[in-house]
Write a protein that binds this DNA or RNA. Structure first.
Lengths: 153, 153
DNA sequence: TTTGTTGCAAAACGTTTGCAGCCTC
DNA sequence: GAGGCTGCAAACGTTTTGCAACAAA
């Protein structure tokens, strides 16, 4: 189901991107990509920064700078869910997936649906060339739904 | 196609909501709702605040406060597109629509697609009770696509 | 050698909060 | 009259920026 993409291939994509855009191949950038590769699910800049600090000396500014580059070459996806901070997730070796967001507790769950994906991706536009999409379904998770029932009397 | 919802009806929804939640019916809140009603398309807190200032004395804090209430009673929808500031749009007299977002210039265009809406809304989940959704399609708008072709090669 | 990138700290940004006074209820 | 709501300004937390030192090309 999940197509494995080797880290070597990912690095190559990044290297090609850096070369093409005349950006430098600094060790910091590869170190950050490495940590992201090891990550499962969502993360934010702060979390990534703290993971980096465990065994690497970087600044938060560099983390943001690198995230920007990775975003640009489509190796990661950015989500602005809560409003407070941005969430990121790697876009390689990951099927396109959709998000269920509980409007009560804010919890985010992912799901994949091939049929739905086909429906969305097959939609063509006269003057727009779509490359990817994100679908957010808002509602109540099981727990919050139950909680609400209790308070309603 | 577009179902007109009278402002009176909208006000009533808001009034009911305020009453039910034991919030006060202040003139500021209705004045803000009025300006939103007159609005077409997306807006943000700052823009709304400036419009208010033209003929009403309010603080930005009250604008945010009221937006929060309107969000809670589902009269408006909040989008976190750019990352900088939140975008809002009224949810009344407006069909559920999807968004095309140009990753180059950031322009947002809306479209409706009944078939797609049905596909998404009919998806059921074992432990999640979805109430609404937002679909963002990312890609290149006509203009940016043309621009990119020129710089290439 | 050139100049893009770094770490650091300070600034910027949208949004939230604390507080005294005001005004619904 | 009680307490929710207001305006104001200061605070917040995430992200960006300015700058001198550094290092990739």
């Amino acid at each position: 189901m999940k197509e494995e993409v080797s880290f070597e291939a990912v690095k190559e994509i990044f290297t090609d991107y850096l070369k093409e855009h005349k950006h430098r191949k600094t060790p910091e950038r590869y170190a950050i990509l490495e940590r992201i590769n090891a990550f499962e699910g969502h993360f934010n800049a702060e979390v990534l920064y703290n993971i980096m600090l465990k065994d690497y000396r970087v600044s938060l500014a560099t983390v943001y700078n690198t995230l920007e580059l990775l975003l640009d070459c489509k190796l990661i996806i950015k989500h602005q869910l809560g409003g407070q901070f941005a969430q990121y997730e790697k876009a390689f070796g990951n099927n396109t997936h959709n998000h269920l967001i509980c409007t009560s507790c804010g919890k985010v769950k992912e799901f994949t649906d091939k049929q739905l994906r086909i429906s969305i991706q097959s939609r063509k536009f006269a003057h727009f060339y779509s490359t990817h999409y994100t679908l957010y379904l808002y509602g109540l998770c099981h727990k919050c739904k139950a909680k609400l029932k209790n308070t309603e009397s």
